[in-house]
């Protein structure tokens, strides 16, 4: 499809933005190669340092602007963990905060033109989701022992239904990391690809008369999609985090 568009003059490369490329040279991608993914993860780390370390260096009682941003995010996630996972879930607050920061900053940095969105890759989100899955599962067994299996035994249901429900619960439990990771990567990827497709229509005005209609429309569409993507960037980070909190609650307090 890319070659088809190119022959016309319109370049359709909606997925090229997701390509992982070596930052230096053109060699094969080994596990240690510094790639554009490395670069944008590094930029995310720098942004996090800038806001959460440099921004709060003043430790002022009356916060500066950057410090108040850091405090708002901190309070928001802290409250979320406390409300959902309970008081004993606060112990895992740094872990959850790390996830939220990484996903949130990656999503927003990915909205910069020419940038690379690390969270649009299933490899990244799958690792995040599997980490959550493993942590929660291991934690559940360590904290509760075999009693953790009560999570799958719905005592509020009639006895006859319980084995059926247990199978369903078990399946849904193992589907969690899949939906958890694909939801994030899929949302981010789809939005970026759609923006790119609209962007490909924008230069049509240079080629044919119909462009006088298509170009303004596509620019309008890009703007609207971009606005939506800003929302999605935050909402997906929020959703990923809140689901992590919910899973953590299951691990700490199994049984419905």
């Amino acid at each position: 499809m890319a070659t088809e568009g190119q022959s016309e003059g319109l370049a359709f490369h909606p997925l090229d933005q997701f390509q992982v490329k070596p930052l230096f040279g053109d060699g094969p991608i080994e596990w240690y190669t510094v790639t554009n993914a490395t670069l944008w993860m590094g930029i995310a780390i720098l942004a996090i340092i800038l806001i959460f370390v440099v921004g709060t260096a003043g430790r002022s009682i009356i916060p500066s602007r950057i410090q108040s941003i850091a405090e708002v995010i901190y309070s928001f996630i802290h409250k979320m963990v406390e409300d959902i996972a309970g008081h004993d879930g606060v112990k895992y607050f740094p872990y959850i905060f790390t996830l939220f920061c990484f996903i949130g900053f990656s999503n927003f940095l990915g909205l910069l033109p020419k940038s690379f969105t690390t969270t649009s890759h299933i490899a990244v989100t799958a690792v995040l989701a599997v980490m959550v899955f493993l942590t929660v599962t291991i934690l559940g067994f360590v904290k509760n022992g075999p009693a953790f299996l009560k999570l799958f035994w719905v005592t509020s249901a009639p006895l006859a239904l319980r084995p059926v429900l247990a199978v369903i619960e078990l399946i849904s439990y193992f589907v969690r990391p899949v939906s958890h990771s694909i939801r994030l990567a899929g949302n981010v990827m789809a939005g970026h690809a759609v923006i790119k497709v609209f962007a490909a229509f924008a230069p049509l005005v240079l080629m044919s008369g119909i462009g006088y209609v298509v170009t303004p429309l596509s620019i309008l569409a890009i703007t609207a999609m971009y606005g939506l993507e800003v929302l999605v960037a935050l909402i997906q980070a929020y959703v990923f985090t809140i689901l992590t909190c919910v899973y953590l609650k299951d691990a700490l307090h199994p049984g419905h």
């Binding site: 080994e30 709060t56 916060p63 405090e71 901190y74």
Partner: peptide, 29 residues
């Protein structure tokens, strides 16, 4: 490659946040 760098990034972010940023913000609040 992605997984390796992701783990590096996550560990770095975790250390930065849990050692420096979060205690500081918590104490300020």
């Amino acid at each position: 490659n992605q997984i390796f760098w992701l783990l590096v990034a996550l560990v770095l972010i975790y250390l930065i946040l849990s050692k420096i940023a979060l205690p500081r913000i918590g104490s300020v609040l």
